[in-house]
Write a protein that binds this DNA or RNA. Structure first.
Lengths: 342, 342
DNA sequence: AACCTGTTTGACACCGGTGTCAAACAGGTT
DNA sequence: AACCTGTTTGACACCGGTGTCAAACAGGTT
């Protein structure tokens, strides 16, 4: 691993280390012909800057970390892809850290992690992105972060999707399919998105002048099992809902599972819809109708913002202190929903 | 971020930097009372070694990387959890790198990645773990790696599961359920595991004295869609298979999808079985009977071996140059398989 | 007391970069 | 020619650790 150092380049180009450093970092005030000499030397020697040396000198590593404890592997995977893509483009390394949201020492564990790796910045995925104690700690330590998922407070940069609108659009679509008894599975009560999803659901009813059937609202927690449980509750009601709309796909698939295990035919006897468009929606039969959340773009944007923040580059056209970007979701109609025929 | 350096500790303890370094690294030949003085100072100041400084001085980062391009998110997620657990325990950072197996510049891309991050070692997941050109490059660069998935050649450390035995056990179980026309979906032809899975399938037939129905063997590629396609082929045969056994769960779920879309009842009219026990197997209805591959343990073991290798610590009781560890899979009977009643 | 041997310790250089600051340079103006 | 001003460059120290090597020390032996 006899690697080429900045000194080797300096000698070859007949300049000082510092000048090579200037060229590498694209600093101003280097005479064009000097720059060229150095660049030639770099090319010829195949020099690559050692990121550790730089990290130490600049007190800034070139790594960011993805902190996750999300119950849906599909959700996380899609996000991860987008994040990774942005990192690769910007020559940033991506660390992974799995945490237990319920751990009482969560905040300390994350602090230790950051100290151990010296990650420059963090990407927080729900439910972590709504954990106030964590944000407090990061702020006090001066660690940058971008939050993914619903913006709860006004803290820091944030990227997510407009879940209120997504729920609204889906509900409107279901109403258009003549469903009047819509079973709804709520998201996790601790996550801000849940409230917004519920609001979209109610607003669509209000707009259509149709009352919400309150008996058909069941609590969920964004996990598969909670979808199964909620569907169990809903399918025992009379009259039974003609469609179950879950606040995320993971739960929608749970509901499908429960329906099929009871021999209820989907979509003939029961329609099912979700939100997210994770990969499992097209791996079950019937494929699930959902609102496509552009997770890839969300992850990509989140990582890009974080990286720009760290590079102290301007972030978009905005003059605001923080960036709050919301993506719209798109209705994806598949086989799990059907017009209700009374 | 005014962090405590080794110099601060040295001053407080009244010794030299080097002595503090000795204590941190648990080196021999430090007088017990000196050691204690230093340890007290470390505690009082809350000193933590800066990993970047160490990395630079030792020419050894404290990071390993997971290289992946696996079509099954469930498979990868489980593995990732185990790997991450081992990393956390050993205070190692885990980098993530997504690659395109089909990319013609795959090897160069990975080389650049390693140079950029200075990862100490790599964990290779199939199909990457069977890519000879990649292994050659890593060997020539002196980068350590542990391969996950089927051992193909005798190169380097390796952890995996005994897929031949897994396929054998599953086939034996299906035969016991009186199935005589077993549809089989092969794995990816480029991956060594595929051959072994097929061997297990055939050996179980041989042992039971039952001929393999060669017309019921279909090519798959470990992806969901290839499972759908293979099932399509198999279900068009006459006589139709009474069970479809796929070389992985991802394809088994694809087969289930195809069966259900044709209105074929599972398991009443068709049994379905897979290998891996990824999370989706319990998220579809009926839950899929499978061979549980201990992915978590495999990931954990792979990372542990790699880390020990890097620390130049002894690896297990073996005297061999390389470790080859195979885990057995366990039959998990769920609702997708049923006794054949002719 | 002089000598020997193994243990403990610290001075110093180094890993591969960057920041600061002053000197050298270039080109125009008086 | 002397002076001025902004640009270009390099010497040096530093980021936070570790490796090498020799000096200092401790304790036993002649």
């Amino acid at each position: 691993m006899a690697s080429v150092t900045i000194m080797d380049v300096a000698r070859k180009a007949g300049v000082s280390k510092k000048t090579v450093s200037r060229v590498i970092n694209n600093e101003a005030n280097v005479r064009p012909q000097t720059k060229e000499k150095v660049q030639t030397a770099i090319e010829e020697l195949g020099f690559k800057r050692n990121p550790l040396g730089m990290a130490l000198a600049k007190n800034r590593s070139l790594f960011i970390a993805l902190l996750a404890d999300n119950p849906s592997p599909g959700y996380l995977m899609n996000l991860q892809k987008g994040i990774l893509q942005a990192c690769t483009e910007e020559h940033m390394g991506l660390f992974l850290y799995d945490c237990q949201y319920r751990s009482p020492s969560l905040v300390e564990e994350i602090q230790t992690f950051v100290e151990n790796t010296l990650a420059d910045g963090l990407i927080l995925v729900p439910p972590l992105s709504d954990k106030i104690e964590l944000l407090d700690m990061l702020d006090s330590k001066g660690v940058s972060y971008v939050r993914i998922g619903p913006k709860d407070t006004k803290r820091g940069d944030f990227v997510g999707s407009n879940t209120a609108k997504a729920a609204f659009d889906m509900t409107e679509y279901l109403i258009k399919l003549k469903h009047r008894h819509i079973g709804f599975i709520l998201g996790h009560p601790d996550q801000a998105s849940s409230k917004r999803t519920e609001k979209g659901f109610r607003d669509a009813h209000a707009k259509a002048g149709i009352p919400v059937d309150e008996s058909l609202i069941a609590q969920g927690y964004y996990t598969h099992q909670s979808g199964v449980d909620a569907a169990m509750t809903l399918l025992n009601k009379t009259p039974r809902p003609t469609v179950i709309f879950a606040s995320n796909d993971e739960m929608a698939v749970g509901a499908l599972c429960e329906a099929q295990s009871r021999g209820i035919k989907v979509p003939e006897e029961l329609s099912i819809a979700g939100i997210d468009d994770i990969s499992i929606t097209t791996k079950v039969w019937p494929n699930i109708t959902t609102m496509r959340q552009p997770l890839n773009s969300i992850g990509y944007t989140a990582a890009s913002i974080l990286i720009r923040r760290l590079q102290k580059k301007p972030i978009g056209p905005s003059e605001e202190a923080f960036v709050n970007q919301l993506y719209d979701c798109e209705l994806v109609i598949r086989q799990s929903t059907k017009t209700f025929v009374g």
